[in-house]
Design a binder for these strands. Structure first.
Length: 597
RNA sequence: GUCUCGGUAGCUCAGCUGGAUAGAGCAACGGCCUUCUAAGCCGUAGGUCUUGGGUUCGAAUCCCAACCGGGAUACCA
């Protein structure tokens, strides 16, 4: 039980004792005492004035007296206006430090047999182009969310649905067939996903040319768009694909494999992975079956052109198309099928979809449709909706060439990291391999932290010129602090100083030491909140605050040179514990921390 | 039109289950490397929290309205 919970209960008791009235525990508002006042925990007494019928000061003093006498941890108190500031005994804080230090991953709750199984879907790429900055936000959020849910004691299955079929895939296939000259990733030296993406662009260029020619011959824009040979070719390919034409399937299989090989490299570089991958080409038929079942059971209806619809007007929404008039499936159909298959594969208690906020409506509808089809998990699905990444010139558009490519971005940041590191010359003595590994850790730390520190639901701005900053509220700043802590501990060991991990409760704590221990004690709270709010940003902000506090402490208080051995030991234990907490926190964000930098 | 998300310092963002004097970083300016890593630390300057009402002991935070911006809105995914 945390100190806040203990005090909270005692306050209800105090009111009962002083004023003979039972109050709702929700009225108890505890907050951390502001730094300018003495104390650790503050009670806001305004809500109790109606009960006490006394002034704020007097009410606070009476509650304070009761707590001081009846709670061991409350050493003394003071009252400022309607705020009751409680001073918690240093022996309590020392015990918190000792327990945090003794756990290698303080704050983490392990999964048990009775834990809930949460499936997290993220990434969900199309196989016609390489991953870009938008995917990076998705991947980082999804991976981190999985780590945070695990840290809260859930079993987590990370999954990915690959959109590997459809007209957009056929476009790059058609372009390769027409203008590819048999090029392969091996023959061209181009990474597979980029090569396929190039042909997707090529398709668009040729398609536009053809439209222009047809319009010059007198066709309307609409007709030209329908009649352009490239479009006809792509459509023909889609029909052949659905008919399982061997030649088309072979081409599709080959080009998709190039893309998967490319994605694997990108995912590995980003440090994300999956437990189970689903392919739309395999799940879309399940969805179609479910929709037809719904039609038979009268849940959906069919129009004269034989398209299938769901009437959602009762839910305050519109009518939703589920199967086109030609019988082919749409995005929604596929998601129904995927959901069904997943729940057959795993005993899922909670399904989380990490998908951009432009699809809020889609998931609102999906939830209702699954519910209508009789899947009890429909209502409970959670759409983890995040905002888009914008560039200074506005939204990224692949056709206008303003997308920031994931591979290029990471490579660029690693290059900046390497240059900076070499200028500072801090990795002397490292082998080239060790140095390269550290440069990459720092570059990716910068990128990941930059993305994850922002509230997921907000749109965010990415300025390539400024975003590669390694100073201030950044990943490298946090990594740097960790590296310095490790350095202090190494130096201590070099000088033969042994750390006694059980700090004596009698030790008087300085205000800076106390502040750091209080911050450490908040880590489990931060993990819980991050889990409940699905927000890696809460972890990022927590770690940043902790690191800032440590830096200030570090500059004012020499650790190894401290003449008093007990104080020195206390500070070393605090440093070590802060280091462990940073490492654990960063792990929840998918960020590695270096021993040196 | 309807639904939805947002609007906090020059810029990027915290703070939002109502609580004490609204916080960081970047950019600007001024200090600090002979003691554990200067990717750091200290200081100065920078705010009608979009606007107007309301709720109350108290509002950046909750409610209503307006303005500005993003997104969605029946055969793209």
């Amino acid at each position: 039980m945390s100190i806040e919970q203990i005090i909270s209960e005692k306050i209800v008791e105090a009111i009962n004792h002083c004023y003979q009235q039972q109050i709702d525990g929700k009225l108890v508002q505890l907050q951390n005492t502001r730094k300018e006042f003495e104390g650790d925990i503050t009670l806001v007494v305004f809500p109790f004035l109606k009960t006490s019928k006394k002034s704020p000061e007097q009410t606070a003093a009476e509650i304070g007296d009761y707590l001081q006498q009846n709670v061991d941890e409350v050493e003394k108190y003071n009252v400022v206006k309607g705020f009751l500031n409680l001073v918690i005994s240093s022996s309590y804080w020392v015990s918190v430090l000792n327990s945090a230090n003794s756990e290698t991953e303080f704050g983490i709750t392990s999964a048990t047999d009775s834990s809930k199984l949460v499936m997290v879907e993220y990434s969900s790429p199309n196989t016609n182009k390489p991953l870009h900055l938008g995917h990076i936000r998705n991947n980082l959020l999804g991976f981190s969310l999985g780590e945070i849910l695990k840290a809260n004691g859930h079993k987590v299955v990370k999954t990915n649905i690959v959109n590997d079929r459809g007209i957009h895939i056929c476009k790059s296939m058609y372009a390769w067939k027409m203008w590819g000259n048999g090029q392969t990733p091996e023959s061209s030296g181009i990474k597979g996903d980029h090569l396929v993406g190039d042909f997707y662009v090529k398709f668009d260029q040729e398609y536009k040319k053809e439209i222009a020619e047809l319009m010059a011959q007198g066709q309307t824009k609409e007709d030209a768009e329908q009649n352009a040979p490239a479009m006809l070719g792509a459509r023909d390919m889609l029909l052949k694909w659905e008919a399982r034409d061997p030649e088309t399937i072979a081409l599709w299989t080959m080009m998709n494999q190039w893309v998967y090989n490319g994605f694997d490299v990108t995912y590995k570089e980003l440090g994300v992975d999956f437990d189970k991958i689903y392919y739309e080409s395999e799940t879309y038929l399940y969805g179609k079956n479910e929709v037809l079942r719904g039609l038979n059971e009268g849940i959906f209806y069919q129009k004269e052109d034989s398209s299938v619809w769901a009437d959602l007007t009762a839910e305050g929404l519109d009518h939703k198309l589920l199967l086109r008039s030609d019988g082919t499936s749409v995005y929604m159909t596929q998601d129904i099928g995927t959901a069904k298959e997943r729940f057959q594969d795993y005993p899922i208690d909670k399904m989380v979809y990490v998908v951009g906020n432009e699809q809020n409506y889609h998931f609102q509808v999906l939830s209702i449709l699954l519910d209508k089809l009789g899947f009890e998990f429909g209502k409970g699905l959670h759409h983890f909706s995040y905002g888009m990444v914008e560039l200074p010139q506005g939204k990224m558009k692949s056709r206008e060439g303003t997308v920031v490519d994931a591979d290029d971005l990471m490579a660029g940041m690693i290059e900046v990291s390497r240059k900076t590191s070499e200028e500072l010359g801090k990795l002397e003595g490292y082998t080239p391999e060790q140095a390269a590994e550290t440069h990459k850790m720092i570059a990716l730390g910068a990128l990941k932290y930059f993305i994850l520190k922002v509230d997921p639901k907000k749109n965010m701005l990415f300025n390539p010129e400024e975003s590669i900053d390694f100073n201030g509220n950044t990943g490298p700043f946090i990594q740097y602090t960790y590296a310095r802590i490790r350095s202090v501990l190494r130096k201590a060991a070099d000088r033969g100083i042994e750390i006694n991990h059980t700090v004596s409760g009698e030790l008087p704590l300085g205000s800076k030491e106390l502040q750091l221990i209080k911050s450490i004690s908040q880590f489990p709270v931060a993990i819980k909140e991050a889990g409940e709010n699905y927000s890696p940003a809460l972890i990022a902000n927590y770690v940043y605050e902790l690191v800032k506090e440590f830096n200030q402490f570090y500059h004012e208080s020499p650790i190894i040179i401290e003449e008093n051995a007990d104080v020195r030991n206390l500070r070393l234990v605090i440093a070590e514990t802060v280091g462990q907490t940073i490492k654990t926190g960063m792990k929840l964000l998918g960020i590695d921390v270096p021993e040196r930098m």
